[in-house]
Nucleic acid binder design. Structure first.
Length: 477
RNA sequence: CGCGGGAUAGAGCAGUAGCAGCUCGCCAGGCCCAUAACCUGGAGGUCGGGGGUGCAAAUCCCCCUCCCGCAACCA
């Protein structure tokens, strides 16, 4: 049975280099997307970049280039990352694109008129930073950047009447009609909603935005607040502006994958906006945790930022994908540790998977056995359930248990002794069993380690099975 | 009294009442087909602290300590 399956990542800000945390999000989403394709679903996997932030304008000024040049350059880094990590996305939405502008404006215009209203916003504005600060962000009442007291500035903005949707949102989340995974995040959202929702601003003045961003339909003096614009990417990418075929086919989203920091926008603002515009609601929100370094935040000032490009360069894509999916907890915060990474590489990839493939292929080659592969995939409810629950770490554990079973089988039955004593029938039976198990393992591995799975498949489907070079050479110590 | 998450073997985690488990690492055997890989066994924990309920608590209740987020127009 073939179903449509639409899955998205969040779209990151492009004013910094790609972060290992976003690499995690890409890899997790990729695993789910690939798994669904393997089930025969028709998948649309979207990622992209959020380019309409005012921060880009400031950064471009600093570098002395146009804002467009800056975002073109920075967004390319994110496109590079999807390639480097072998991400199977079907599209990459840029929020500077025409179809995004048109779609975001259509969404705005389609919202119920009574949900959008103008209000004066009063805030503490630092001219140097060109941004508003909340009182708590100030240090001794001064801007942390410029050590100057901000001015009180009044500005007329559009607001979205979130308060109209309080009870609807509560029901939506409570009932799992829009399911938030994991449960702890769902509870967080519910308690937030029950505390009472305040309207939020969805525009800023054109002057302050310096002409950067999506213009508010029918009001040249305003551009959309970056979240209204950014969230709409999930529909604009599908051609919402023209109500295109992809939109009709793939919307609503089956899964939005996001980090815990932006849950409120996705679990509260986004469905409210869609309800206002009468657009169908997404079905699942999967919230992953953050990656820490030695228990603390990763930050440039501490110099402990993990660069995904550097990691891939050093160890290869598949080990990085493996580590992120197996040893980074799917929903809790996790520490990144190079030591643990290298241990995982050696123990699981080199000694475990890689060695087993050579071990089995070598035995077959030495004894000149002809293998009959059963290419049908067994039903595997346990594994499917883990994948459906986004439990990537446990799904991989499941696969590695299978690897250990095959190693155990070989140690117990000692094929090399069977060969010496010419028990060919028994030997063939054992190696057939081992080869089929490894072949089945390669199928399970596909969503996680697509290249490795492919290599294993090639080895065992070849005319003559021969032992190749190690899949994961040992790290030099 | 702002809200939430976490504290279980050296590391990372599972375990919502019934003899405390898994992976890695460590130690000792075995094997010799394989990338000094693989298999078996072992050491290692008063389950953050204190109190309570129960025949029985990591698991339920109360108090305390420590860590990490969020606290709204700021990914």
């Amino acid at each position: 049975m073939s179903n449509k399956f639409y899955i998205t990542t969040a779209i990151p800000y492009v004013n910094a280099n790609p972060h290992i945390g976003f690499a995690l999000e890409l890899v997790q989403t990729d695993a789910v997307a690939r798994w669904h394709r393997q089930q025969g679903d028709e998948v649309f996997f979207l990622t992209g970049a959020d380019e309409n932030s005012l921060k880009n304008v400031q950064a471009a000024e600093k570098e002395g280039i146009s804002t467009r040049e800056l975002v073109d350059k920075n967004t390319q880094r994110f496109i590079d990352l999807t390639n480097t990590l072998n991400i199977s996305n079907d599209d990459f939405i840029r929020t500077v694109s025409d179809k995004h502008f048109a779609g975001a404006q259509k969404l705005w215009s389609t919202c119920k008129p009574e949900d959008i209203y103008k209000k004066t916003y009063k805030g503490l504005y630092c001219v140097g930073c060109e941004q508003f600060y909340t009182e708590k962000e100030l240090i001794d009442g001064k801007c942390p950047e410029h050590q100057k007291e901000p001015e009180v500035v009044e500005e007329e903005n559009y607001f979205f009447k979130l308060s109209n949707y309080q009870s609807k949102l509560e029901k939506l989340i409570e009932s799992d009609e829009y399911r938030v995974v994991p449960e702890s995040r769902k509870n967080e959202v519910l308690s937030f909603v029950r505390m009472g929702l305040e309207d939020f601003s969805i525009s800023r003045s054109q002057a302050r935005a310096k002409n950067w961003g999506v213009p508010v339909p029918g009001d040249e003096s305003q551009v959309m607040y970056v979240w209204f614009d950014a969230l709409s990417n999930y529909i604009t990418a599908l051609g919402y502006d023209q109500t295109g075929e992809e939109f009709k086919k793939f919307w609503p989203a089956d899964v939005h994958v996001i980090g815990k920091g932006i849950i409120r926008f996705h679990a509260v603002y986004w469905p409210a906006m869609l309800m206002s515009a009468g657009v169908e609601l997404p079905k699942n929100l999967f919230v992953h945790g953050y990656i820490n370094i030695d228990g603390g935040k990763m930050s440039k000032s501490l110099g402990n930022v993990i660069d995904p490009f550097v990691l891939v360069e050093k160890y290869g894509v598949e080990p990085v994908r493996y580590y992120l999916l197996r040893y980074v907890h799917p929903v809790l915060d996790s520490d990144f540790s190079t030591k643990q990474f290298e241990q995982a590489y050696t123990a699981d990839l080199a000694n475990g998977l890689g060695n087993l493939v050579n071990r089995v292929a070598g035995l077959i080659e030495q004894n000149d056995i002809v293998i009959k592969l059963d290419k049908d995939r067994d039903a595997n409810d346990e594994f499917d359930q883990l994948m459906a629950g986004f439990l990537f770490d446990q799904a991989l554990k499941y696969i590695w248990d299978k690897i250990a079973q095959v190693d155990g089988l070989i140690s117990e039955t000692k094929p090399w002794e069977l060969a010496k004593t010419s028990q060919t029938e028994k030997l063939t039976e054992i190696l057939n069993q081992a080869a089929n198990s490894v072949y089945h393992i390669s199928w399970l591995l596909k969503p996680f380690l697509p290249e490795t799975a492919e290599k294993i498949e090639q080895i065992f489907t070849a005319e003559k099975i021969i032992k190749g070079t190690p899949l994961f050479p040992r790290l030099e110590s």
